[in-house]
Amino acid sequence: MTSQGTRRMVFMGLLVALATALHVVEGMLSIPLPVPGVKLGLANVVTLLAIYLYGFRDGLTVALMRVLLGSLISGMFLSPGFMLGLTGAVGSTMIMALLLKHTTCFSMIGISMAGAAAHNMGQLLAACLILQNSALIYYLPVLLLTGIPTGIFTGVLLNSLISQSEKSGMLNDLVRTSP
């Protein structure tokens, strides 16, 4: 394996660990909403970083790994909460990758807001499907609104991280040069 490939693998490992930790900690902050497993979406910051550095596929890997590991750790493996986490993670990863790679008008802030919104929407959709009832749509506005501040917060963090690294060339070693 090339030294760059090794570096990538190591860094990916770090990202997964970080995302999982965030996922578990987030799970412990109890949000007073009756849709179980609904999270703020902070762990998305890591997913977005992975997409930025390595592309959609690796971003998806990080997302799926964090849901898997996170659920194992918090004892929710294969539970319906796990399903919600999956749909949320997949939905947000897809949206964020789409926006990052195919548009230039959004900054990390916009992308992470979209990701947080997609994350919560995905969870809501999964919950409705499991219960075979669309009544939960009552919570749609709240879920959208809570996604916004976390999206902004994580976006700002990523923005500053990236502009810092652009100056210092910090992340250049990690970014895949081949398309």
Binding site: T103, C105, F106, S107, G110, I137, P141, L145, I148
Partner: peptide, 27 residues
């Protein structure tokens, strides 16, 4: 924050408020 970001933000907020109004009257 880019202009597109701001539009997205406004759009999301607007959509939430509209759906709140729609759902509130329905329920």
């Amino acid at each position: 924050m880019t202009r597109a970001d701001k539009f997205l933000l406004a759009g999301l907020v607007l959509f939430s408020l509209l759906s709140m109004a729609a759902l509130y009257s329905r329920f």
